[in-house]
Amino acid sequence: MVRVDGNGGAASLIHVRGLDKKYTRGGEEIHVLQGLNLDVDSGDFVAFMGPSGSGKTTLLNLLGGLDVPSAGTITVAGDEITHMSASKLTGWRARHVGFIFQMYNLIPVLTAFQNVELPLLLTKLSKSERKQHVETALQLVGLGDRMKHYPRQLSGGQEQRVAIARAIVSDPTFLLCDEPTGDLDRKAADEIMDLVGRLVKEYGKTVLMVTHDPAVAQQAQVTLRLEKGSLVGAPEGAAKP
């Protein structure tokens, strides 16, 4: 159940209260997020929309522990991340967050296999266990036969699928996608969205996704809009399938 009214129970997976983010640029203050509330439960699939500059990426970065808010709290699975030290936050990210960005996702000098293996290098898994996980993830995104390919040998859609495999390989608590289809054509975008939809439906993943594309947003259970620094939407009306 997704809520933006601040009335969600403390038991929700992602629990955001009074989130504020200000930037100062050249003496001028930009108040991007203003007392934003959000509750997301495990297995939810949320799409964030809003005009350019409304703060979608900012919100995602805060949720992923890449940035710190000016005020407010973010609690994920009971851990409040807003007061963690930078190094603790790094470790937390490795365990809980799978990122899929619009670009810059893959390391060009590593193969698909090696790219997907990266998050597992931070775990205690043995080499053969890592291999097994990577192969499973790549097969799940339909690239079992492209493991030895380098990013430049893959299409944009395939690259993004490798990025998805990398985001899920360590089985994080939730996935954050910032315009994952922004650079893709319709067909490739649809394939990516089918894949994300399957991750939610078949594997119970929790996904938070930013998009400009209403067709993409439709795949989500809930679409929220960022307006004047906080989220609005009709979470009640959007029934879970």
Partner: peptide
Amino acid sequence: VLKALGFSN
């Protein structure tokens, strides 16, 4: 990206 994945500074 490495840092986002959880590699430390």
